[in-house]
Amino acid sequence: MDDDFDLWRSDYDPNRLAPQLAPAVERPLQGVSQWATGTRAFFEMDLRWVNFVAARGGYEVPVLLPFVYTTWGWAGYGDRGLTALDTSALLRRRHEQWGAELFFTNGCYLDLVVARPPLDPPGAAQAAAELHACCHDTVDDAVKTGDTMALSTMWSLWWD
């Protein structure tokens, strides 16, 4: 167990990851949704719904509409993973830290539009580590994530 933690820490500790990332950028990378734009195939009979929700921010959606968004092995199975409140707290942190707003969700797919993505290696390393901690299905390469998605205006996540 300690060996697994040490391996994870060597890859995802922001202080160790930041020096491996590309230099700071002047402006965010232009993000493109992987899920809402149809660039990825959903199930053959996939339906799209538009929900207007009275909320202070998109971070409240997992609590207000708990069955629209599920993270299968994380939130989808109750006490074995993240709850809707946990997911809401994670989204709120991203909202406060980087101006991330929920843009699209469908089952285990989620897109965030990010107003203030981190532009420097320490910030990108922190974002990559946090994204990996809750969504290792999408974030499996810390350096790639820190140099691309973390610097982007769109964060596309999915859980398997």
Rank of each mutant, 00 (worst) to 15 (best):
W159N: 01
T148K: 01
P23E: 15
G146T: 02
F43G: 11
A100Y: 05
A24K: 15
P14Q: 08
P66R: 04
V143W: 03
P19N: 03
P62Y: 09
C108Q: 03
W155K: 01
A142G: 05
L85M: 11
T83R: 06
A18G: 06
Q126S: 12
P23C: 10
G107V: 07
L85G: 14
G31N: 07
A129H: 01
P62S: 05
S33Q: 07
C135Y: 04
S33W: 03
L112N: 00
D86Y: 08
G76K: 05
M1K: 15
V114E: 03
R40L: 14
A129E: 02
D137Q: 13
E130L: 15
L29G: 05
A22Y: 03
T138G: 08
A89Y: 09
K144R: 13
A55V: 05
Q126E: 12
A100Q: 06
L17D: 00
P117R: 00
T70Q: 07
L91M: 09
K144D: 13
P66S: 10
P121W: 01
R27M: 11
T71C: 10
A75H: 00
D79N: 15
L110G: 00
A55R: 04
A22E: 03
E26F: 15
A115S: 14
P66G: 06
C108F: 12
Y109M: 14
L110S: 00
G73T: 10
Q34S: 14
M45G: 14
D2V: 15
A84V: 02
W35A: 06
V53W: 02
L7D: 13
A100N: 09
T148V: 12
A54K: 11
G76V: 02
L112W: 08
G38I: 08
A54P: 02
W158G: 04
T83F: 13
A128N: 00
T83C: 10
S33L: 12
